[in-house]
Computed example of a mutant assay.
Amino acid sequence: MTRLLSGLSRPRPALTYGETGATRAPADLPGGYRHLRRTTVVGHGRAAFERAGTAVTTWRMHRDSGASLLADAGRAAPGTAVEVSVGLGPFRLTAPCSVIWAAYEDRRTGFAYGTLTGHPECGEESFVVELEDDGTVRFTVTAFSRPATWYTRLAGPLVPPLQRAYADRLGRTLRRLVRS
Rank of each mutant, 00 (worst) to 15 (best):
R108Y: 01
P90N: 10
R175C: 01
C97M: 07
R37C: 12
A148C: 09
G66E: 15
S145V: 00
L4E: 08
R92M: 14
V86W: 05
V86T: 11
H62L: 13
G135Y: 05
G53D: 15
R179M: 05
C122I: 03
P11M: 11
T16D: 15
V159S: 02
P11E: 12
E50M: 10
A25C: 04
T149I: 14
R63M: 13
R38V: 00
P13N: 04
H44R: 04
R146N: 01
F139Y: 14
F139C: 10
V84G: 04
L70K: 06
G156F: 09
S85Q: 03
C97R: 04
V137N: 11
E130F: 09
A155K: 01
L70F: 09
V99F: 11
G74C: 12
E130Q: 10
Q163G: 02
R46Q: 01
L158Q: 14
F144H: 07
T152I: 06
R46V: 11
A165C: 06
A55Q: 14
L174T: 08
A47K: 03
L69E: 07
E132P: 03
R63A: 08
V56N: 07
G45H: 09
S65E: 15
V129T: 04
W59E: 13
R92W: 12
V86I: 08
P11R: 04
V141I: 14
P90M: 07
L70W: 01
R75V: 06
D134S: 07
R108M: 02
A48R: 14
R107I: 11
L177E: 09
E121G: 09
T149D: 14
V42D: 11
T173H: 01
A155D: 08
A48V: 13
T94V: 13
T54I: 15
A25V: 09
E125K: 08
G89L: 09
E121M: 05
Y166C: 11
L158A: 11
E83Y: 11
G32W: 09
G87Y: 08
R51G: 08
L170V: 05
R169G: 00
R108A: 05
E132Y: 13
G74M: 13
T40Q: 03
A48K: 15
E125T: 04
T117R: 00
L154Y: 15
D134R: 10
F127Y: 05
V41W: 01
R153P: 15
T140W: 05
A76C: 15
G74S: 11
R164E: 10
H62D: 10
G118I: 11
A95F: 02
F127A: 08
A95W: 02
A81C: 06
L69S: 15
R34L: 03
R24Q: 10
T115H: 01
S6D: 04
H44M: 12
L8S: 14
T109D: 11
F144T: 07
T23P: 01
A81Y: 11
G171Q: 00
P157G: 00
A143S: 03
C122E: 09
G32F: 07
C122N: 12
R175P: 04
L5D: 03
P26W: 15
F127G: 07
R37W: 14
P161R: 04
V128D: 15
G118Q: 03
P160M: 04
Y113D: 09
R63F: 07
L131T: 08
A81N: 10
A77M: 06
F139V: 00
R12Q: 05
R175K: 00
S68F: 06
I100K: 02
F139P: 06
S68V: 10
T142F: 00
